[in-house]
Write a protein that binds this DNA or RNA. Structure first.
Length: 568
RNA sequence: CGGGAUGUAGCGCAGUUUGGUAGCGCAUCUGGUUUGGGACCAGAGGGCCGCAGGUUCGAAUCCUGUCAUCCCGACCA
């Protein structure tokens, strides 16, 4: 493609609403343009990159034996009503009505429709195992779209669903997808970590997320370099750490603590450390109220707590008036002593001695509290958020934490949808059985953003060959010099003939402009045709390298073809 | 949905405090000089100052409402 004909509206200045690098660069490089919050259009370069990512996913899905199909994206409400998710999704689903006032939505994910399709179309147990997938635009009315293409309301997703006769079959299908995902993200040049994820209260026997480590990631992950353990915050198992507490069986003491509500305020009031306190938080769990206690320097992990409590809705902090009613005190003075609701106590709190809690009386705290003597915990369990400095639950070495971008999620669904919708089969002996399902998602558009987040420099994107919109850019330094243009054309034609996707910068621009644009849009290899072209010498520069090499024309072409093909 | 901020030319911004005919840089167009890391000179075009009300002789500027966008939080199959 000739740059003079290509729509690449690069920007010198960054639109002010872009915050993270991938967003800024995709805008500056003319990859995308925003239409509304969380809704983007793809210009030619952006579309090419997105298509490359799709193609990698497609090839690896096919290799793993999955079959591609394409479902409708505009779906009648009944699809989701049968599973109850019409209500579960609620405002997160784009809902609309047709001219006859029938309810429809734009598909946010397709478990139901795939399940229904298998019910309708699969006739014999002999057709299992079966894995189907599609690459499709998904719609979710996110409460807060953000970070450019990272979290959007319209995005391309690959979703796959496996159907097996038994758990063993599910394990095999799941492992195939796991391997395929590893290959996909490797081919995309992503530095990723696979973490154990929470599989939710709705069951399912396992779930893993593919995370690209990046400071702009929205998910916290804990990992161990020593043994390879990795889990997201929700799932990561916490081992209690030891702290020093006053020795002996000190007697309980009520202390007046006027206007001291928060842990920070307590720390300065008592002149001690946060771990000497245990905080008591009141939650609403469905229609009842519970209390949860963690050490003062820790945070409650609401997902762990929710799974433990076994409630259906997510936990919510109790309303202030309920806190007053339950504790007989203003918010900030809750404690376990004399509290008449279930108290869930973190493992670490169970090891504390002579510690400080709220007194359930405005303006007072208890000192020298001891478990079992002063109050009896309901349930003792791991309910806190893991932190840097914790020890690895697997090998005991120090755990590290990082932020990650979730690019893929694989999930053993089990029978959740097959039971709800009636996906059964009759086995060899005539027994009716329920089909076991798995689901597997990749945020294709998000992969591009993640790749950019991991690969950029001051001049722009440094895209891996596999995702770059074009492989090579041929730059005649001065488009008016006939000799240079002729040679550049020759190189350009030769590359194209050999299957390399080349750009020719034939614009009437100064060299500096061409170099800046080539760098910005992230083309992996640049061949510059300049003054020395009369001697048959051109410049060969990888985007990842600072310096260029001089090569003969033939050498440059051969090396380019070799380099690109070996990095695809 | 709570908190904060911002809407002025394609992009980045000033002007708003103290009301008086809308400005700068980049980009675009024309002519010329340039040509290896976002050139220079000269000229030109481009605006319902987010939208709607109000106050005023007069509103980008003050008041009210509304919409949109971004950030923090809640939320995120």
């Amino acid at each position: 493609m000739r740059m003079s004909k290509l729509l690449v509206p690069t920007l010198r200045e960054v639109p002010s609403d872009a915050e993270i690098m991938s967003h800024k660069l995709m805008l500056r490089a003319g990859y995308i343009r925003k239409l509304a919050a969380g809704i983007y259009s793809y210009l030619p370069l952006g579309l090419r990159s997105e298509r490359k990512a799709e193609q990698i996913v497609r090839e690896e899905m096919d290799r793993a034996g999955a079959q591609e199909l394409l479902m409708a994206a505009l779906l009648p409400a009944e699809v989701y009503q049968a599973s109850g998710r019409w209500e579960v999704f609620g405002d997160n689903m784009f809902k609309l009505k047709d001219r006859n006032d029938r309810d429809f939505c734009l598909g946010p994910t397709h478990e139901e429709l795939f399940t229904q399709t298998v019910i309708n179309e699969v006739r014999s147990y002999k057709e299992y195992p079966l894995t189907l997938y599609q690459i499709q635009t998904k719609y979710r009315d996110e409460a807060r779209p953000r970070f450019g293409v990272m979290r959007t309301r319209e995005f391309v997703m690959k979703d796959a669903y496996s159907f097996d006769r038994d758990e063993k079959g599910l394990d095999e299908s799941y492992n195939k997808m796991y391997d395929a995902y590893c290959r996909i993200f490797k081919r995309m040049g992503l530095d990723f970590t696979i973490v154990d994820a929470d599989s939710g209260a709705m069951g399912g026997s396992g779930s893993q997320e593919f995370m690209v480590k990046s400071p702009v990631g929205e998910d916290g992950i804990a990992y161990c370099d020593a043994c390879g353990y990795a889990a997201n915050y929700e799932k990561a198992q916490c081992i209690p750490t030891k702290k020093e507490y006053p020795e002996g069986d000190l007697s309980l003491e009520k202390v007046e603590t006027p206007d001291v509500h928060t842990i920070e305020e307590l720390v300065s009031f008592f002149g001690t450390e946060p771990y000497v306190f245990a905080k008591t938080i009141i939650y609403k769990a469905d229609d009842k109220y519970i209390a949860a206690m963690v050490r003062g320097d820790r945070e409650i992990n609401e997902v762990k707590l929710k799974n433990l409590v076994g409630c259906v809705d997510d936990l919510e902090l109790a309303e202030p008036f309920m806190v007053r009613q339950l504790t007989n005190a203003e918010v900030g003075f809750a404690g376990p002593i004399g509290l008449d609701i279930d108290v869930y106590v973190d493992l670490e709190v169970a090891e504390m001695k002579n510690f400080i809690v709220g007194a359930n009386e405005t303006g007072y705290h208890y000192k020298n509290v001891n478990i079992n003597r002063d109050f009896t915990p309901g349930t003792v369990a791991d309910i806190r958020v893991i932190e840097e400095g914790d020890v690895c639950p697997k090998c005991g070495k120090p755990i590290k934490t990082a932020q990650g971008i979730e690019v893929g999620h694989i999930f053993k669904l089990g029978t959740k949808y097959s039971k709800a919708l009636g996906l059964n089969y009759t086995d060899e002996s005539g027994e009716p059985k329920v089909v076991i399902m798995g689901c597997y998602g990749i945020g294709v558009t998000r992969c591009i953003a993640a790749a950019i987040e991991q690969n950029y420099d001051d001049n722009g994107m440094v895209l891996p060959v596999a995702l770059a919109p074009y492989h090579v850019i041929v730059v005649p330094v001065n488009s008016k010099e006939e000799e240079q243009m002729k040679l550049a054309e020759k190189i350009y034609d030769s590359l194209n003939e050999q299957g390399i996707e080349a750009l020719l910068d034939d614009r009437q621009e100064r060299a500096g402009v061409k170099f800046k644009d080539a760098d910005l849009i992230g083309i992996p290899l640049r061949i510059v045709v300049g003054k020395k072209c009369e001697d048959g010498i051109v410049e060969y520069k990888l985007r990842t390298e600072d310096k260029a090499e001089e090569k003969t024309i033939e050498q440059a072409i051969n090396d380019a073809v070799k380099y690109i093909k070996s990095n695809l």
